[in-house]
Structures are given as structure tokens and as C-alpha cells.
Design a binder for these strands. Sequence first.
DNA 1: ACAATTGTTCACCGTATGGCAAACTAATGT
DNA 2: ACATTAGTTTGCCATACGGTGAACAATTGT
Lengths: 115, 115
Amino acid sequence: METYRTPLDAAFHALSDPTRRAIINRLMTSPAPVKELAEPFSMGLPGFLKHLRVLEDSGLIATEKAGRVRTCRVRIERLAEAETWLSEQRALWQARTDRLANYVETQMSGNEDED
Amino acid sequence: METYRTPLDAAFHALSDPTRRAIINRLMTSPAPVKELAEPFSMGLPGFLKHLRVLEDSGLIATEKAGRVRTCRVRIERLAEAETWLSEQRALWQARTDRLANYVETQMSGNEDED
DNA sequence: ACAATTGTTCACCGTATGGCAAACTAATGT
DNA sequence: ACATTAGTTTGCCATACGGTGAACAATTGT
């Protein structure tokens, strides 16, 4: 079903849906079975299961079935990858504003009364 | 075009495509005109412009046209929102593992020779 | 054995996505 | 004036997405 190329593609895609973010949010506190996870949402189980599959295919969660109950838990590593990408970007931004601040500073010490 | 509900939906969706992440990555260092941004990619301009629109609609970038050149720059706030959501989730996870560690510890001090 | 609980599969639907090619507009260089 | 550059619009396409209802397992409680 998921044709996503890289893990990051899949992770960000999975996070782009509010239902799925809510699921992640819930699972951060503790693992839970499918039924309990589904309860807060108005949609039917089939639709809900699709969301779970998107999450599982993305690696953001893992599931395991015991008896008739499938228990879901978060895989924090994948979430960390997304976080890492974002913080790398912010590092680039930081480097840039640092350069800019530095430039402004050298300019000002050159002509202190400039506008 | 974008029917996205919340800013977070739109931001994560925008980031789920490798082309768009590459654009963001490029823009982190400095603003750039459309043509220069498009050069590294094999696709045509119309397709590329769609990516730019997704990014702009998500609030991850802003663009401004001067003469015939449209310059694009990152809007760091929106990226920060995504980062914030992720770190909130990790805080929940952290709280959980802390609780768990605490529990294990109290158990061990109760029966120190247990397996 | 039987019913209830829990999950799964299937076929379907309307809309969005990611791409293309072609035609077009607007600003700039010569 | 004319050609070039830079971007835009339009129409099209195949596939993916988010949801539905109906039928079908498989486990568990009584």
C-alpha cells in the first residue's frame, strides 16, 4: 500500500494526519490494544486500521498480536529520525543568522554612526 | 489546492516529499529564486512550482516577486512548530521511561537478590 | 456448543497528489 | 522592436489517500 521511498518520507507522511498524530500521542504514554486506541475516534475500524498500517509501515509504531488482541507501541527511533532532520535544518538556519550577526557587527564597528 | 486543516498537518505533509525537503534544506542557507531552486531537479518547472506552492501553503516558506524573479525564503516559525510537536512527544516518552526506571528501582530495593 | 469480542479483508467512492506537455504572460537584455 | 529569460496557467493522467459498508476470521467467556 505504501509506496514511500525513504523512511523520512514515510514518517513525515504518517505524521501529517491528525488522527495518526493523536494515536502517536496516546501511545507515547503506554502501549495499547487496537480497540482502545480506536475508541476516541468517530470512524469505523477498517478506516482506523488503515491509519495504524500507515504508522506501522512508516516504522513509527510496532504491533504484536496475542490471542485476539493486537497491541501497539511506539518505536521512538523513527520519531527521533524526524526530529533529527528538523534540528539539522535549524542548525543551518542558526549558522546563517550567526554569519549575518557577525557581518552586521563588523560593519557597525567600521562606521558606528551609520543608520 | 491544499485542503489541509491544521498548520501542523500541512507542515508535515509538505515535509513528506524528498524534493520539498531538499528545497527547504537549500533555503535554510539563504533565500533563492525559483529557477536556481529548480535546477538540481530533473522535473519540469510546472511540477516544481507545485512543490513550491505546497511549501508556501504550508507556511514553511514565503515568496516574493520582484520584476520577473520570485525569491523564496524559509519561514522558520512553522518549522519550529513541527519540531515542537515532536519534542513534546519525546517528553511524554521520557516521562514514561522515568516512571519505569523509578518502578524498577523501588522493586530492586525491596528484594535485592531477585533475578 | 454458542455468542460475543476483536480484528481483518474486500470492494468501492470521491478527492488529492505528483507529474507531464503546451500555450501563455511579463520583465529584461541588445 | 525583438529575442530571451523567468515564471504561470491550463488540461491531462495514473496513482495514492481517507473513508465507507458488508462479509469474514479467530479467540474467549458462559
